[in-house]
Design a protein around this nucleic acid. Structure first.
Length: 569
RNA sequence: GGGCUGAUAGCUCAGCCAGGCAGAGCAUCUGGCUCUUAACCAGACAGUCGGGGGUUCAAAUCCCCCUCAGCCCGCCA
């Protein structure tokens, strides 16, 4: 349990411990056991008997390159939203771009709207950021020059990220909430009760003096434009505050104030994060919010306390998720160790990527690009479990029953045709889509009678798997040699190739027959089997090794195979 | 220093909430397929459930201590 307050006598708030949220039922044993964590969370939300539409929120401060870690803020909420919708609830999913946050540091890397990750120096206006430290992100020019502000650029990327995974979210700009007056009433309440606000926050932040003059609002200086105003007087009737523009600390650097003494309205500033978060909950009516483990012990307990004791409402059901790593190392938005949604979707089908987020949120997970074939194989089994075409235990079945429909756009009546991912990568050896289909059929991965639509859906995986094989340059990264590779067979091997060509021409063998014939031919000419296979791989792939040669050659165009075996081109 | 979370087969992970034979996939090995070839099939091997203690008829699961990793206890999100 989170201790809400050391000296709280007015109410013994039942603190929900977010660290155990997300799968476990808590204080009662009445709720049913759930195979899918999102259903356990949905149970918890429904237990509060919320008004509809139920609001699920996520949000990020849009500063560096948005990466798959940020997608937790979209996908975890989405899965809970879907669990509720399937129970007949109306749900709104909103996503806040915390774009009034000040620019605190200059990110080393940024992304274009097309997800090209570039260093700041390569943008059109690299000085835009460094010259505007301390200003709200929406008041900083876009270094790319394509959007109204840096904040707008970043928020645009967040929207595109959600679109890319096919999750409909309402993106809400914090700056808009301030400027349109959405935050005005809650700001007024916080200022009216600023002593209480200060006392509560002081329990969580040593820098706040409970008897001091802390005010939970930071005006934007109307002279230098930075979030450096310190409030010296509050006029609630007039709806303004007086401020002095002073130096403020941001990270390990100081943002210089300009000394200006001015007046700002309640729309011309920003609530400190510890108050802004609960303010969002109230203004947007949030019922559920997932957040990263970094929030679990700082902002969540204080936000929960602020919302109950200062603002007077029940905070949302919380859920902490563990962070992802990428190839074993922490993702870093500013330094550029990132994998973007665009990167991922170039290698994975959208439904497979969504499946990744159905795994329990509390466990740290590595997004291991080298092992993506395992993830796809797992998804294929998950899908087959849903359609009942594979043996699975009861837990697997009930999980698939619930979670699979949330991964795909439409559940079709029968299981889609799936080509195993590594084989799909092998098919990427050729760009000829007819040849891909032929090879898939002859290898038994594509039914002869498959409808054209299901063939093209199945073959869509080839581009993804090919991209994966190329990026990781792994053992599935084959390329059909377009022109005759340089080979220098011994006379015996040359004669064997000639015989093999004749056999192929005469018999049009299937893969297994051809595989056997390769052995026979090699032996018949006194050529080492290993050497002969290597010669074959060299001729067709210009590699010393490759897929099983007989089925591989049988799947290729026969005229091409003959020409190549005879070294005619 | 105080706190939160995690650690299960070589690898990736289920199982833990509500105690009941230690699981899956991949990898490995063996065998099969007229056949050493990364796209086939079958079988086998594989774990001190991070370590130690406790509760219990019974502990991966509940409790306590410890180790390691990430995070929080400044700012910020």
């Amino acid at each position: 349990m989170v201790r809400v307050s050391a000296d709280d006598e007015t109410e013994s708030a039942v603190a929900v411990d977010p660290l155990t949220a997300g799968g476990e039922n808590r204080d009662d044993g009445d709720r049913p056991r759930r195979a899918f964590w999102a259903d356990a969370v949905a149970d918890e939300i429904e237990a509060r008997d919320p008004e509809e539409p139920i609001v699920v929120k996520g949000g990020v401060s849009p500063s560096g390159v948005p990466h798959i870690g940020h997608l937790n803020e979209v996908m975890r909420g989405y899965l809970v939203a879907e669990a509720l919708r399937e129970r007949g609830r109306e749900v709104r999913q909103v996503f806040t771009a915390d774009d009034r946050d000040p620019l605190r540091a200059v990110p080393r890397t940024l992304a274009t709207l097309d997800w090209e990750v570039v260093s700041l120096g390569d943008t059109e206006n690299p000085g835009a950021l460094g010259r505007n430290l301390g200003r709200p992100l929406t008041d900083v020019p876009d270094p790319f020059g394509c959007c109204d502000s840096f904040g707008a650029h970043q928020t645009h990327l967040l929207q595109r990220m959600a679109d890319a995974v096919g999750v409909p979210v309402e993106v809400v700009s914090n700056t808009d909430l301030y400027e349109d007056g959405g935050f005005e009433e809650v700001t007024r309440d916080l200022l009216a009760d600023r002593e209480r606000a200060r006392e509560v926050l002081a329990e969580y932040q040593a820098s706040v003096d409970p008897d001091g003059d802390y005010v939970p609002f930071t005006p934007i200086c109307d002279s230098c434009g930075k979030l450096t105003g310190r409030v010296v007087a509050v006029d609630l009737d007039g709806g303004t505050v007086d401020y002095v523009c002073e130096d403020s600390e941001a990270g390990n650097r100081t943002i210089e104030g300009c000394g200006r003494e001015g007046t700002a309205t309640l729309r011309e500033g920003k609530l400190p994060w510890r108050f802004e978060w609960p303010a969002q909950w109230r203004v947007l009516g949030v019922d559920f919010e997932p957040f990263g483990k970094d929030h679990a012990e700082g902002s969540w307990p204080s936000g929960e306390h602020v919302s109950r004791e200062v603002l007077g409402f029940e905070p949302p059901v919380p859920m902490v998720y563990e962070w992802f790593t990428y190839n074993g190392e922490a993702l870093s938005s500013s330094s550029g160790h990132v994998v973007t949604v665009d990167d991922v979707l170039s290698m994975l089908e959208r439904e497979v990527f969504r499946y990744f987020f159905t795994k329990p949120p509390k466990r740290a997970r590595d997004f291991d690009v080298g092992g993506l074939d395992q993830l796809v194989d797992e998804f294929d089994r998950f899908e087959a479990t849903y359609f009942g075409t594979v043996d699975a235990d009861e837990d697997e079945r009930s999980l698939a029953d619930r979670a699979y429909p949330m991964c795909v756009d439409d559940v079709s009546g029968s299981s889609p045709v799936r080509i195993p991912y590594t084989f799909a990568a092998v098919l990427g050896m050729t760009d000829d889509s007819d040849l891909r289909a032929t090879m898939a059929r002859r290898s038994g991965h594509l039914p002869e009678d498959a409808a054209p639509e299901s063939v093209s859906l199945a073959l869509a995986r080839v581009e993804k798997a090919r991209e994966w094989a190329v990026r990781t340059d792994n053992e599935y990264n084959y390329r059909l040699a377009e022109s005759l590779p340089a080979v220098d067979p011994t006379p015996e091997a040359a004669a064997a190739l000639e015989d093999l060509a004749d056999f192929v021409e005469r018999e049009a063998p299937d893969g297994e027959t051809l595989q056997g014939e390769i052995y026979e031919t090699a032996r018949g000419h006194g050529v080492g089997v290993g050497d002969f296979f290597e010669l074959g791989y060299r001729l067709f792939l210009d590699e010393p090794e490759g897929p099983r040669l007989g089925p591989f050659l049988a799947a290729l165009d026969r005229r091409f195979v003959l020409r190549r075996l005879r070294r005619e081109g």
